Computed example of a mutant assay.
Amino acid sequence: MSFMIGILICGHGHFARGLIEAAEMLCGPQAYLQGLDYELNEDIDVYRRNLLAQIEAWEPQTEEILCLCDMQGGFPMEACLTELPLKKVKIITETTLTLLTYLLVRRNGSQDSHQMIDNAVREAREAIYVIDPQILFADQEGEAS
């Protein structure tokens, strides 16, 4: 039996569903990748039970589970923190598509999970740019004159 790192995306609204759809467009269908969105007016206890049930369903087949949350301090992150303290779970907040795709591509490689997570976070931070089209195309306008 091979062991895998499971990835559970937790967020508000349609965050998890949208992120998984985008990631699978880039990386193909993925085993042990699930989302748990917290919907407006959803019963908090139901969300907590669903979270715990998903983690427990994966425990026999996974060596570790990463809970990727949409934001620091939000309810989905808090639920992961309070419901899963004795489980083999790590929580990562402020999840992006770059972070998720990095983890999906490398989760079964030779890196240990700490190294993989550190590298994924660094890649996600370095992928953030502010692009100002006026500055970007300013040189081209000067050349066209």
Results as ranks from 00 to 15, higher is better:
Asn50Arg: 10
Leu97Asn: 03
Leu40His: 08
Glu83Val: 06
Leu40Ala: 07
Leu51Arg: 01
Pro29Glu: 08
Glu21Pro: 03
Asp132Ser: 11
Arg49Glu: 14
Arg125Gly: 15
Ile9Ser: 00
Leu136Gly: 13
Leu33Ala: 00
Gln134Ile: 07
Pro29Gln: 08
Thr62Arg: 04
Ala138Gln: 14
Phe3Val: 15
Cys69Ser: 09
Gly109Ser: 02
Leu103Ser: 04
Gly6Leu: 00
Leu81Ile: 13
Phe15Glu: 00
Thr82Leu: 09
Leu86Phe: 10
Gln111Leu: 11
Asp45Gly: 06
Met25Val: 14
Thr98Pro: 04
Asp139Tyr: 11
Ala53Arg: 06
Ile65His: 09
Cys67Val: 11
Thr95Ser: 12
Ala16Thr: 09
Cys67Ala: 09
Asp118Tyr: 02
Gly109Phe: 01
Glu94Phe: 09
Glu126Phe: 13
Glu126Lys: 12
Leu33Thr: 00
Gly28Ala: 10
Arg48Gln: 13
Val89Thr: 05
Val89Met: 00
Thr95Gln: 02
Gln140Met: 15
Gly73Glu: 08
Ile131Lys: 08
Glu21Ala: 14
Ile9Trp: 00
Ala53His: 02
Glu39Thr: 06
Arg17Ile: 12
Thr93Ala: 14
Thr82Glu: 06
Ala22Pro: 08
Leu104Val: 06
Arg125Val: 13
Ile91Asp: 03
Leu36Ala: 03
Leu81Trp: 10
Ile117Val: 09
Cys80Arg: 02
Arg122Cys: 13
Leu36Gln: 02
Ser110Phe: 12
Met4Tyr: 12
Ser145Gln: 10
Gln34Asn: 05
Asp43Cys: 08
Asn119Leu: 13
Asp118Leu: 03
Asn41Ala: 11
Met25Arg: 05
Ala53Phe: 00
Glu42Gln: 12
Arg17Gln: 15
Gly13Ile: 08
Leu103Lys: 01
Pro76Trp: 06
Ala138Glu: 15
Leu81Ala: 14
Pro29Gly: 02
Pro85Tyr: 02
Glu39Val: 08
Tyr32Gly: 00
Leu52Met: 03
Tyr32Gln: 01
Asp37Lys: 11
Asn41Tyr: 10
Leu33Trp: 00
Ile131Gly: 07
Ile135Arg: 14
Phe137Pro: 09
Asn108Ala: 14
Asp132Gly: 06
Glu59Arg: 14
Leu51Thr: 02
Cys69Asp: 05
Met116Phe: 07
Val105Cys: 03
Trp58Pro: 02
Arg106Gln: 14
Gln115Tyr: 01
Cys80Gly: 03
Leu100Trp: 00
Lys88His: 08
Gln61Ser: 14
Asp118His: 08
His14Gln: 15
Arg125Glu: 14
Pro133Met: 12
Lys87Gly: 02
Asp37Ile: 06
Gln134Pro: 01
Gly109Met: 04
Ala23Cys: 05
Asp43Met: 02
Leu40Pro: 05
Thr62Pro: 04
Asn119Glu: 14
Glu143His: 13
Cys67His: 05
Gly142Val: 15
Val130Gly: 10
Gln140Gly: 10
Pro76Glu: 07
Asp118Met: 07
Ala16Arg: 11
Lys87Pro: 03
